[in-house]
Nucleic acid binder design. Structure first.
Lengths: 397, 397
DNA sequence: ATGAAAGCGCTAACAA
DNA sequence: TTGTTAGCGCTTTCAT
C-alpha cells in the first residue's frame, strides 16, 4: 500500500507504531523507518461539522435517503423518516447551506447595501426588511458602504459572489457612476433601489415623496409667515439634494417668492454639519427667518446653535426637517418634519424584490412611492392664534 | 437515441419538428408523435453566471489554470496570467463564494446576532465591526433577534448552516436558556459574546463596566445631594439588569443609604416605557429626587414627563442614564451618562473573534472590559456653586 | 422505498 | 508551466 520514501519499493513496507500522533512505517527492504510528514495536511482544516453522510452512516443507509427524509419528500417510509429525524437531532446535524445553495443554484438570501446603519432611517428600514425576510424564508446579508462609492462597489461584488438571489440598494451620497449597477442588470440579477435611488437606470424602485414632502414643508414655513427661507442640502450632485431642492423651489415659486442662491447651502450631511450651516445662515446680510434641512438631525443641530444665541424659535427663526425620529419628537422645541415612514419603505422594497425574484422573466420596473405625512410641531408652529388659519389646511401639489 | 414512450422501441424514432418550443419525436414503428414533457426542467433554474469553466473554455485552457492565475499562485506564466485576468474582466467573472467556501471549508464570514439595530449602541457597534471586517478580509452576516429568544436561536442555526467561521452574539433581553450556545461550543465554532453576554458559560466576552458605570452614576447622584434614588431596570432576569442593579446597591451602601425595594422599577426597556416608570416613581409616597435608568433613552422620556409637570431638573429631580448618544447630548437638559463606547466594544469583540478563528486550538476565554467614562451634564449637575465640590472628583471602586 | 451516481463551481494534489 | 482528477456536502435523476 505505502511506497517507501527511500527505496521507492512497496513490498517491504509495514506499519510500525506511531510517532507524534502520526503513522510510522518501516521498510524491510532498505531497513528504514519513516513517517509521512505531509500526511493529513488538508483534512484537519476542513470543518468538523456533521454532514448528511455522517447521519447516513450512523443509520447504515444512503445519503440520498437521508436527504429525502429531511426534506419532506413523499417516497419514503414513515419509519425511515422518523429514524432519520431522530438521528439528525442526536448528531445535531445542520444542513450545509453552501452545498445546498450550490446545488440548487439559489441561496434564498437577499443582499442589502446601505450607506450607514447609524442613520435612523436605515436602521428602521433594515429592521422591517428583516421582519419580512424571516416570514418569507429569506435570509438577509447587509453591507455598509460607509457613504463611500468604492466600498459600495466592493459590497455589490461581494454579494454577487455570495450569489444572493437579489439586491436591495440605497446609494452612498457620493456615488455618481452606476456602471456597477448596469453589470448587475446585465447578469439578470433582480435589484430594487430604495430611498437613495439611481435615476439614470430603469430599475424597480421604492421612493418616498421627496418632492411633495419638501414642497409641503417649505409651503408650511411660508404659511407661517416666513419670507426668507434657507435650505440645507447634501452634496450638490446627490440626487436627493436635487429633488428636494426642486420641491423647495416649487413652493417658493407658488407664492412668488424669489429664489436666492445665498439661501441654498450644500453640505456633506455629516454629524455636526448643522452647526456650520447655521453659522453660514446667521452671518448672511439678511439671515433667513425659516430653514428647511433635508436631514432632520442637522435641523436640530441648527436649533441648538440658535438657542445658544437666544434666538426665539419659531418666532425669529423657524425650522423644519425631512424625516422623523425620536430626537425630533423629544427635542425642545420639537421639530416639524415630513415623516417618510422608513419601515414602510423597507417593507415595500423587499416585497417588490421577492416578487421579482420569483418571476425573473416578467420583471416590471415598478416605481413605488410611499406616502408621507407632514407633522407640525413647535419648531415652526406660530403659537399666536392669529396664524392658526394655516394649520390643518390641505394642499394639493 | 430516443426511446418511444409508447412502444418503448428505439429504432423507429426520428425527430419531427418542434412543439411549444420543445423537440417533437415520431415513432415510425407505432406511428406515434410525442414530446418529452419534463425535458429541461432542471437546467433553466440554474444561475446563468459566468463560471471558471466559461473563462477556461473562452481561452482554450483548463479550469485549474484559470484558478491559479486568478489566485496569484506562482507556478504560472506571466502571459497566461495576463490573458486570464483580461478574460475574467471581459466576461465579468465573479468567483462563486459558495463553491469556494465549500471547497476550502471556511467562508471568511462572521455571523453577528444582535437584538435590535434600532438601539444606537448596536448600530454603532455594528458599524465598527464592519469597518474592521472590511480591513481584515472578512464579511459580516447580521441577524436581528428582535429581542426574541426563539428568533435568536433560529438566527444562530441559520448562521451555523451558512458555515460562518465564527459568531458574535449579544443576547435578547428575554433569553434565559443557553443550550443553543452550548451546541455552538460543542461544534468547536469560535464565539465571542459582547455587551449582553451569558454569564453561565465560559466564553470569550467583551463587556463594558456595567458595575462600575452604575456605581459611578449613582454615586454622582448622591454627591449631588440626592437622598432618594430610583432605578429603572430592564427585565428582572436580564443579566444586565442584575449587574447594573448591583452597582446601584453598592453605591448606596457605600454612603449608608438604605436600599428600598419601592425605588427599584423593572421594565421591558421598550420605547416609551420611561413615561410609565416616571408615572410609577412620581406616585410613590416619597418620590425619588434622583433617578438612574439603565437605558438613557428611557431617562430622557422620564425627563419629558418631568418637564410636563414643571418639575425642576436637576434641583427637584436629577436624572442619569447608562450609555451616551446624540439624543443625550442635544436634549435639554442634556443627560448625564456613563459612556460605554459602543464602537470600541464592537471593535474589540471582532478582533478577539478573529484571533480565535485563526488559532482555533489555543482559544483563550478572555474577558475584555472596555473602560467607560462618566459624562456629567445638566440633568444632574447642581448649578449652584455650593455643591461644586463634587464635580470632577475622582472615585475609586 | 432505497441506493448509486452525477453534478453544482471551485481548488489542490498529482501527473505530465 | 499546464492539464487531469478528485472531492467539498448536497440534491436529484435513474436504476433497482
Amino acid at each position: 500500500m505505502q511506497r517507501c520514501i527511500k527505496c521507492n519499493s512497496v513490498d517491504g513496507v509495514i506499519k510500525s507504531g506511531f510517532l507524534r500522533g502520526k503513522q510510522r512505517f518501516f521498510c524491510k527492504l532498505c531497513d528504514f523507518y519513516f513517517i509521512l510528514e505531509n500526511e493529513n495536511t488538508r483534512l484537519p482544516q476542513k470543518t468538523n461539522q456533521t454532514t448528511i453522510l455522517d447521519v447516513a452512516k450512523h443509520l447504515g443507509i444512503a445519503a440520498s435517503t437521508v436527504s429525502r427524509a429531511l426534506n419532506g419528500k413523499s417516497d419514503i417510509s414513515p419509519f425511515t423518516r422518523k429514524a432519520v429525524q431522530q438521528a439528525a437531532i442526536d448528531l445535531d446535524y445542520k444542513p450545509n447551506l453552501l452545498a445546498q445553495s450550490l446545488n440548487k443554484g439559489k441561496t434564498n438570501t437577499i443582499g442589502v447595501v446601505i450607506p450607514n446603519v447609524e442613520l435612523p432611517f436605515f436602521a428602521t428600514a433594515l429592521a422591517s426588511m428583516q421582519q419580512v425576510a424571516i416570514n418569507t424564508g429569506y435570509r438577509i446579508m447587509v453591507c455598509h458602504s460607509s457613504e463611500c462609492e468604492a466600498i459600495e462597489k466592493l459590497n455589490i461584488e461581494t454579494l454577487i459572489s455570495c450569489r444572493v438571489d437579489g439586491l436591495l440598494v440605497s446609494h452612498s451620497k457620493e456615488t455618481t457612476s452606476f456602471e456597477h449597477i448596469k453589470r448587475v442588470i446585465a447578469k439578470n440579477i433582480p435589484i430594487v433601489h430604495f430611498d437613495r435611488v439611481c435615476n439614470e437606470i430603469t430599475t424597480p424602485k421604492v421612493i418616498h415623496e421627496d418632492f411633495k414632502g419638501s414642497f409641503e414643508l417649505v409651503e408650511h414655513l411660508i404659511l407661517q409667515g416666513c419670507k426668507k427661507i434657507g435650505v440645507m442640502l447634501g452634496p450638490e450632485k446627490f440626487y436627493i439634494s436635487q429633488i428636494r431642492l426642486e420641491g423647495y423651489k416649487a413652493a417658493l415659486q407658488k407664492y412668488n417668492i424669489p429664489i436666492i442662491e445665498e439661501y441654498i447651502y450644500y453640505s456633506d450631511m455629516n454629524k455636526y454639519d448643522g452647526a456650520k450651516a447655521f453659522e453660514y445662515f446667521i452671518n448672511l446680510p439678511a439671515p433667513p427667518d425659516g430653514v428647511f434641512s433635508i436631514l432632520s438631525r442637522n435641523a436640530i443641530e441648527m436649533m441648538v446653535e440658535a438657542k445658544k444665541r437666544h434666538i426665539k424659535i419659531p418666532e425669529e427663526m423657524a425650522f423644519v426637517g425631512f424625516g422623523d425620529d425620536t430626537l425630533c419628537e423629544l427635542f425642545e422645541p420639537s421639530l416639524t418634519v415630513f415623516n417618510h415612514f422608513p419601515s414602510k419603505v423597507g417593507e415595500a422594497a423587499i416585497n417588490l424584490l421577492i416578487e421579482n425574484i420569483k418571476n425573473k422573466n416578467s420583471l416590471i420596473p415598478a416605481v413605488l412611492s410611499i406616502q408621507g405625512e407632514l407633522i407640525i410641531r413647535d419648531s415652526s408652529r406660530v403659537k399666536t392664534g392669529v396664524n392658526s388659519w394655516s394649520v390643518g389646511q390641505k394642499f394639493t401639489e
